[in-house]
C-alpha cells in the first residue's frame, strides 16, 4: 500500500470509529479514547527513535509536557499582555484567544522538536547510553524550570478554560478526540513511511551496527538528529491539547513518570520493529489501564504496566509482533538454529 493510500485508509477507519462511538452518546468513551489515542502518538513517536534507531528516550514525559506548557504559556499571554505590555501589542495578543488548537499543536511540536534537537546534538555524538541518561535528567530539569516559572502557574498549576462547544462538531471532548485521532493517523503514516524509505534503512543501520554504518558513509549523526527531532515533535504535539483535555495542569501531572513508562512499555510490548507494534501495544495497554484505573486503582494499573514491561523484555524481546512472526514462521519452515555468540567468545 502506498503511503497516501495508507493515510486515507487509516483516516477512514478512525472516522468510522468516531461515528460509531458517537452513536452511543457517551462522553466517557471519548474521554478514555482520547487517552488511548494519545498513547498511540507517544508510543509511535518513541519508536521512531527507540525502535528504528535503537536509542532509548526516557524523557517522553518532558517532551509531552513541553507541548502542554506551550499551550498554557500561549493562553496566558493575552492576559499578561493586557497588564504589562503596551496597548498595541496587547491588542495583537488578543488574537491568541482565537487560535485553534491545531496551531497550538504545531507550536508545541516545534518547541519539543527543538528541545529534542538540542539534547540530541549535545549527547548523541557519544555512546548511546549517555543520551538515555541525559533524557532522564532532562525531565527533572525541565520540571524544575516549570515549577520555578510563575507565569505558567509554577508548582501551583494552571487552569485552562475549556469552551463547552465548538462549531460543526459540538461537544468539546469529541473535538479533542477527533484532533488526537488525526494526529495519531499522521504519526502512524510517518512511521510507516520512514520504515519503507531510505531514511528507515539508514536508521536500521544505526540500530544494527553504528560503527559499520559510519564506516560505510551513512551520515549517522544527522540521521539520529532527524529521528530525535521528529520523535520529540510528535510527543510535543500529543501534549499540546492536553491542558484543554484535563482543564487544570500542574507540573507533577504533566511530567508524570507514567508517560515515560508507557511510551517505552507500549512499543516494547507490541514490538519495536514496525509501526504495528506501538499501535498494538498502545491499544492493548491503554485500554487495559483505562479498565484497571476505573475498576481497581491507577497505581495498580501502572504496576501492571511496569511488570508487563519487565516480563516482555525478558521473555519476548520482540514483543507481540515478534511472537506472531515466530508462530507464522514455525508453521511454514523449521527454524534454523542460530549460533550463540556467547559460546564463541567468553
Amino acid at each position: 500500500m502506498r503511503t497516501p493510500v495508507f493515510f486515507l485508509v487509516s483516516l477512514a477507519v478512525g472516522l468510522a470509529l468516531f461515528f460509531i462511538a458517537r452513536q452511543y452518546g457517551n462522553d466517557y468513551i471519548f474521554f478514555a479514547g482520547y487517552t488511548v489515542l494519545q498513547f498511540i502518538v507517544l508510543a509511535t513517536a518513541w519508536n521512531i527513535l527507540g525502535g528504528y534507531c535503537g536509542y532509548v528516550n526516557f524523557g517522553s514525559a518532558a517532551f509531552f509536557a513541553m507541548g502542554a506548557y506551550t499551550t498554557v504559556a500561549l493562553t496566558k499571554f493575552p492576559n499578561f499582555a493586557n497588564r504589562y505590555l503596551p496597548e498595541s501589542i496587547a491588542w495583537l495578543a488578543q488574537g491568541i484567544t482565537y487560535m485553534p488548537i491545531p496551531v497550538f499543536m504545531l507550536l508545541g511540536g516545534l518547541i519539543a522538536g527543538l528541545v529534542g534537537l538540542g539534547t540530541g546534538y549535545l549527547t548523541l555524538r557519544l555512546r548511546g547510553v549517555f543520551f538515555a541518561i541525559a533524557t532522564l535528567a532532562l525531565a527533572v530539569v525541565l520540571q524544575t524550570l516549570i515549577v520555578n516559572w510563575d507565569y505558567v502557574g509554577g508548582s501551583r498549576g494552571a487552569y485552562v478554560i475549556r469552551p463547552a462547544t465548538v462549531p460543526l462538531i459540538g461537544n468539546y471532548v469529541e473535538y479533542l478526540f477527533l484532533l488526537m485521532m488525526v494526529l495519531s493517523v499522521i504519526a502512524l503514516t510517518v512511521a510507516r513511511g520512514i520504515e519503507r524509505s531510505q531514511l528507515g534503512y539508514g536508521f536500521a543501520t544505526i540500530r544494527d551496527d553504528e560503527l559499520a554504518a559510519e564506516a560505510s558513509g551513512v551520515p549517522t549523526l544527522r540521521l539520529k538528529l532527524v529521528a530525535t527531532t521528529l520523535s520529540g515533535a510528535f510527543m510535543g504535539m500529543a501534549g499540546a491539547p492536553f491542558p484543554y483535555y484535563i482543564g487544570f495542569l500542574e507540573p507533577s501531572s504533566a511530567f508524570g513518570l507514567a508517560y515515560a513508562v508507557n511510551s517505552i512499555a507500549m512499543p516494547m510490548i507490541g514490538g519495536t520493529t514496525s509501526w504495528v507494534g506501538p499501535l498494538l501495544g498502545a491499544v492493548l495497554l491503554g485500554s487495559l489501564q483505562q479498565y484497571a484505573t476505573v475498576t481497581i486503582s491507577s497505581a495498580v494499573s501502572l504496576l501492571v504496566v511496569g511488570l508487563l514491561l519487565v516480563g516482555f523484555v525478558i521473555i519476548a524481546p520482540n514483543g507481540i509482533v515478534g511472537l506472531f512472526q515466530k508462530f507464522v514462521r514455525h508453521k511454514e519452515e523449521p527454524e534454523i538454529p542460530l549460533h550463540d555468540p556467547a559460546e564463541e567468545t567468553p
Partner: peptide, 27 residues
C-alpha cells in the same frame, strides 16, 4: 548480556525495575 541485547532491552528492563519498585512502595 548473553543475547547481546543489553543496549535497548537491558535499559528498558532496569527502567521497568525502577518503576515497579516505586509503584510497589507507593502501594
Amino acid at each position: 548480556e548473553k543475547r547481546g541485547q543489553e543496549a535497548l532491552r537491558g535499559l528498558a528492563f532496569f527502567f521497568g525495575l525502577l518503576f515497579v519498585t516505586e509503584v510497589v512502595l507507593i502501594l
